[in-house]
Simulated assay, not measured.
Amino acid sequence: MSYTIKDVARHANVSIATVSRIINNQVGYSEKTKKRVLAAIEELGYQPNAVARGLINKRTHTIGVLFPKLSSTLVTDLLSGIEKATHEAGSSVIVCHTESNGEKTMKYLQLLNEKRIDGIIFTSAPLYEEYYEYIKKMNVPMVLLSTETYSFPVPYVKVNDRHAAYTATQYLISKGHKKIGMLCGNVEDAVSGKPRFDGFKSALKDHNLPFDDNNVVFNKAFTFHDGAESLKILLKQVPDLTAVFAASDEMAIGAISSAYELGIKVPEELSIIGYDNLSIADMSTPPLTTVAQPLTEMGEMAAKMLFELLDSDQTVESRIMPHKIVERKSVLKKEE
């Protein structure tokens, strides 16, 4: 049997308005009354109707999250943090897989608009003007996660990719490596590709190490396959490399796999450092040394910022999250 708010009010001997205020965390009742109503809700197994709640407080208690790729392990960690903060706020998440496709992204934005979602977290992809203008017309708050924009006034949560890539390269240099290569993403990607490439180049320059175009292989993405194939290319171009910085953990583990096929021992003959600190970094052989992004915390922070925007008319500040090197077994100190 499905119970209604009238049944709860009758069971607790209070008015329907009182039950409604308690469900929606409004004022105007005693603690004793609240306990009685909550007990009645639990006893009857009453589930408040989300649509009815939305009519009362002008919210649907749902947020939309747009990801360019769902197969990435990175998404799992970001989404874990988003869901934690969202559920604590009494809301739910609709996840949209855009595949970095403009037409698909716009269709998902139209769907989210029809669903009357309360806000949007836009992740890991450039925020184009078409998206921004549509979301602006939706009149809902938005937070960027693992991406940023200089064109529009939208708060973001991310790591400083340039600085983090610099740190990874500097770590290899501190281990005595002078012939260092990079497996890079798409250099035209202003979110992750170019900043990580720039950080790599800057670290070499600041430590008086020459940069050569042959020391970098560019890819369209940051996948295991990209890492595996581009390491083979990189070693053909520069056979005497002693260390490699991969622009993602998936690429780094692809490189480790490729090195195994080529009969190259990691880290004895080739040191490899990754970027992200995904859960798979601990599972590789050898376990992957990497520069860590606090992905779960980033997702949680983005959701909290979104609810802060919903609960007040104030703006929120963007957050640059800390990164650090997590040492495992894939980098070896080079003997002089």
Score class of each variant (00 low, 15 high):
residue 34 K to L: 00
residue 2 S to H: 14
residue 50 A to W: 11
residue 72 S to F: 09
residue 7 D to H: 12
residue 77 D to Q: 13
residue 20 S to A: 07
residue 101 N to S: 10
residue 59 R to S: 07
residue 111 L to C: 08
residue 110 Q to K: 12
residue 40 A to D: 03
residue 46 Y to A: 07
residue 60 T to E: 06
residue 63 I to W: 06
residue 55 L to S: 07
residue 85 A to E: 15
residue 75 V to F: 11
residue 81 G to C: 01
residue 72 S to M: 09
residue 104 K to D: 00
residue 97 H to M: 06
residue 69 K to V: 15
residue 77 D to H: 11
residue 71 S to M: 12
residue 13 N to C: 14
residue 31 E to C: 08
residue 29 Y to Q: 07
residue 35 K to F: 10
residue 2 S to V: 14
residue 98 T to R: 04
residue 66 L to T: 02
residue 22 I to C: 01
residue 33 T to V: 11
residue 39 A to H: 11
residue 109 L to T: 06
residue 60 T to H: 08
residue 42 E to S: 13
residue 40 A to P: 03
residue 12 A to C: 02
residue 44 L to S: 02
residue 87 H to T: 15
residue 66 L to A: 05
residue 95 V to R: 07
residue 26 Q to D: 13
residue 109 L to Y: 03
residue 32 K to C: 09
residue 48 P to G: 04
residue 35 K to G: 10
residue 88 E to H: 13
residue 13 N to A: 15
residue 76 T to L: 13
residue 73 T to E: 15
residue 62 T to Y: 11
residue 80 S to R: 12
residue 84 K to H: 11
residue 22 I to E: 01
residue 78 L to I: 09
residue 50 A to K: 15
residue 40 A to F: 01
residue 52 A to Y: 02
residue 25 N to Y: 14
residue 15 S to L: 01
residue 96 C to L: 00
residue 45 G to T: 02
residue 21 R to Y: 11
residue 41 I to R: 00
residue 45 G to W: 01
residue 94 I to L: 14
residue 54 G to E: 05
residue 7 D to Y: 07
residue 54 G to I: 01
